[in-house]
Design a protein around this nucleic acid. Structure first.
Lengths: 182, 182
DNA sequence: TTAGGCATGTAAAGTGTTACATGATTTG
DNA sequence: CAAATCATGTAACACTTTACATGCCTAA
């Protein structure tokens, strides 16, 4: 599933313009499926060309015409088909973890900053996500809940295991501490 | 941090050929930074051209020459510099969650399959990861522990909240269940 | 005898990110 | 008066993914 398909899915809920979709991405998808204008606008153009959506242009003063896209029947079908296609992926790409992997090459101050910054971001995103946990559909709620729980687990892990990497006392760094998963 | 930099980092631990690096990616980075031959071989070629690594060709019978790469001093410096550059990203892109977001458009059987498949994958990756939790460096252990804990949280969430989406009794689907994060 | 491991790579296609370009109105 | 919001898009770049291409050796 690419940005194009996701746009189609959102348009199957309600009609919208590119700008609206971007806001939806920001509020509901940011933490697991980010997309910017550079993906959304071309996606809409493609969908329109394939006649999976219609476009109605609403003139405005002082702004570009607002292009409101509405899904077509062909679009509905295409979306349902996409929803049933092949096992959906779930991919993480973490420069953060890759960096931490080499913790022994990073000085304590920098390392502490990295860990703190990540925890802070996680806490922020938990705030964001919690705001839409009571969202429109069960699916939206489930996904938001998932994000919140996973982020919470990540933050807690970092806080409770940071001693493995950064010690107030520098000697701790050389002690090989047994990690217990649970 | 891209695949190129990660290869450089791995070569700063020990010399290796592309094939070896791929195996390391599979065993240690797969769950948070996947990479295939199509990324690794070009990365090595680039690193060699930039003289951040040297290459020694070892002739073999019945196989292509084994090209063993070893990091140079310039490479070590470049890697340390990369490790200290800008806040590292941590990006998730989940077609799975995007699909589940539209759960109300998916029939119960398919939905149950999706959830089951994901839980199974998570359990598998927990197995994988646990195997390298006592790895060489504190950083490697920390990262493995992180992966295991987060995957466990994800699996548990799916199991304990699947009733939000899939009901043995189909009526449950329409009841809007309040999600509690904790 | 067949599957899997060892070992290299290229080329094209697909996708997303970032930066650029424009500009009025509203809010603090 | 500055910053944010509304509103569109393109173009270049970066990067990864996938498919292709080759071929021997070993273990089950």
């Amino acid at each position: 599933m690419d940005v194009k398909t996701l746009c189609l899915g959102l348009l199957s809920i309600r009609e919208a313009c590119g700008y609206d979709l971007k806001k939806t991405f920001e509020s509901s998808f940011k933490h697991f499926f980010p997309a910017g204008y550079g993906s959304i606008y071309p996606a809409l153009a493609d969908l329109a060309e394939a006649e999976l959506v219609n476009c109605r242009e609403i003139p405005q003063v002082g702004k570009p015409d607002r292009k409101v896209y509405r899904i077509t029947e062909a679009g509905e079908l295409a979306f349902l088909k996409a929803l049933n296609r092949t096992e959906p992926q779930h991919k993480l790409r973490s420069e953060f973890l890759a960096t931490i992997y080499f913790a022994d090459r990073i000085d304590d101050t920098r390392l502490a900053d990295l860990l703190d910054a990540r925890v802070e971001k996680l806490r922020e995103s938990i705030e964001d996500i919690s705001a839409c946990i009571d969202d429109e559909s069960p699916g939206a709620s489930f996904v938001a809940g998932f994000g919140a729980v996973v982020a919470e687990a990540a933050a807690r892990y970092i806080e409770s295991h940071r001693h493995m990497l950064v010690g107030t006392d520098n000697q701790e760094k050389d002690i090989h501490i047994k990690v217990v998963t649970g």
